[in-house]
């Protein structure tokens, strides 16, 4: 059997596990310090072994400059900066971030404060409970929910989710959410397989996970819609969602 280092004081049991949080950012100058502070509060306090990888896509608002300040406050072992020249999309941001990740688990989330780091310890507990390959946050189950959505947005969201469940039977209740924990190897495999962009990318990741017989655990989360900045759900998002759904319907 593999020898394991005994957990020191303040450490959460199994110290072999390391969690890499990937934060892709674009114009998140306001939100980035807060999200990092919250991550450190919840991950540091629970004694987990972790790192935060910030992948900034050349934000014109100076997100990277703020990230550098955060790095000097919290240390280069906790905060890693892996910026890119320009906006290159989510899928490649994950690939890029993963290349530099030293953890055996990867957590992906939005940096706009709609995903709260307080749920990460729950994700980790859930993962251990069933040795899941993927743990997905869900707004549609248990105590999960949203804040800041009007009736129209709720109807569209529930309707789209219902249709997706009927057509794809993906075995997970929240397909378009992007707050998830993956085993690193599993994420690598999935990113290789996935071809879609944006929104649909998150959906494809879960559908492919099911196709490859990976196990998926779920944790209810509260989704607080963007505190700063505008949130968007227009006609073009709905059309690209429909296209993505039909593509997955015909190909998986």
């Amino acid at each position: 059997m593999e020898r394991r280092r005994r957990p020191g004081p303040g450490e959460a049991g199994d110290s072999v596990e390391k969690y890499s949080v990937l934060l892709p950012t674009y114009n998140e100058r306001e939100n980035l310090p807060i999200i990092v502070w919250l991550l450190i509060k919840y991950l540091g306090d629970s004694g987990y072994n972790y790192e935060i990888i910030i992948i900034d896509d050349g934000s014109p608002d100076g997100t990277l400059e703020v990230a550098k300040q955060l790095q000097s406050i919290y240390g280069t072992n906790k905060i890693l900066l892996r910026p890119r020249e320009k906006k290159l999309g989510l899928g490649t941001a994950y690939i890029h971030g993963m290349q530099h990740a030293t953890g055996n688990f990867i957590i992906i989330m939005d940096a706009d404060l709609s995903h709260h780091p307080k749920f990460i310890p729950e994700f980790i507990r859930k993962q251990k409970e069933g040795n899941f390959d993927v743990v997905s946050g869900t707004r549609y189950k248990g105590n999960g929910g949203v804040y800041g959505w009007d009736l129209k947005r709720k109807i569209i969201s529930r309707g789209a989710n219902f249709l997706t469940q009927i057509l794809l039977r993906p075995g997970a209740s929240d397909l378009t959410g992007s707050f998830r924990l993956y085993k690193k190897k599993v994420l690598q495999k999935l990113v290789e397989k996935c071809v879609s962009k944006g929104y649909v990318f998150q959906m494809e990741m879960i559908v492919r996970a099911r196709q490859l017989n990976y196990t998926i655990g779920e944790v209810p989360i509260s989704f607080v819609d963007r505190v700063y900045g505008e949130s968007k759900l227009g006609g073009s998002e709905i059309i690209s969602f429909a296209k993505g759904l039909l593509t997955l319907f015909a190909t998986t």
């Binding site: 404060l113 549609y140 929910g145 804040y147 109807i155 989710n161």
Partner: peptide, 21 residues
């Protein structure tokens, strides 16, 4: 869909907690 829209949780507490934090 109607039932799920009606029972979609409004996370007021979570929003308030976030503002404080």
């Amino acid at each position: 869909i109607g039932f799920r829209v009606a029972t979609f949780n409004n996370c007021e507490d979570a929003a308030r907690e976030l503002q404080d934090q």
